[in-house]
């Protein structure tokens, strides 16, 4: 019964979508908002990477929402897994793992920061760099599980980075009467110091995402919790 309903629903949906396919302007969509951004994005925002311009300037509110969602998820994971002092049963990694992690840590850190800071110029940005940062901090945990990560410090970084994002937005609110309007000079298109406050926002996003994901992975790893 359940499967029959499923097949019917999926068949119906698939049929609809396939039939509609011939009416949809695939491959030649009506660019409305997109065309305008392509035209003026570089000048108004000053970022060469227009995706970053959309993400942090035009649709900055979405990015704030996205940060909040990740924060909510991390908070809920903490709530679900409990906050007891957990006994980590994993043994110390072998020499190769430990040496490898020592080697990887600074490399990943630099790459992560590079990706974050060049978000407005090249593909990548706060979020992608943040994932790399999280990996940088997670690899040593894999090698030496007992040392773990300081969750207090992580929540501090997380909170302050999020507050910094909103703070930059509020600064614009009071300076120009528009929340999240990019401030500071736009600089020369394509230079590192350009696009006004965008790199700062990117930095905040990167730190927040990095701290959140690192915390998430470590708490999943440590979740040796007993029955509640």
């Amino acid at each position: 019964m359940r499967n029959l309903a499923a097949v019917l629903f999926i068949g119906g949906l698939g049929f609809f979508l396939f039939v509609l396919f011939f009416r949809l302007p695939l491959g030649a969509p009506p660019l409305v908002a997109g065309a305008a951004i392509l035209e003026e994005g570089g000048e108004t925002v000053g970022a060469a990477n227009l995706v970053t311009a959309v993400l942090l300037a035009y649709r900055g509110m979405d990015t704030l929402g996205e940060l909040s969602i990740l924060f909510a998820a991390a908070t809920a994971v903490g709530l679900v897994l409990g906050r007891r002092q957990l006994v980590v049963s994993d043994p110390e990694g072998g020499f190769i793992l430990r040496a490898g992690s020592d080697l990887l840590f600074p490399l990943l850190l630099v790459v992560g920061l590079y990706v974050i800071l060049h978000g407005h110029l090249t593909p990548g940005g706060g979020f992608q760099g943040g994932v790399i940062l999280a990996a940088a901090f997670f690899v040593p945990v894999l090698a030496r599980p007992r040392r773990g990560l300081d969750h207090g410090l992580l929540s501090f970084v997380e909170g302050l980075a999020g507050a910094a994002f909103i703070g930059i937005g509020l600064w614009a609110l009071f300076a120009r009467d528009a929340f999240l309007e990019p401030l500071l000079g736009k600089g020369v298109l394509g230079h590192l110091f350009s696009a006004g406050t965008l790199p700062l926002l990117s930095m905040a996003v990167g730190l927040k995402v990095g701290a959140e994901l690192a915390g998430l992975m470590t708490s999943l790893m440590e979740a040796e919790g007993r029955e509640s």
Binding site: Y58, T63, I69
Partner: peptide, 17 residues
Amino acid sequence: DPIPQALVLTAIVIGVG
């Protein structure tokens, strides 16, 4: 169009959370 790309970035993050 850059807008859908920004949307998908957001959606991916939501998904992983």
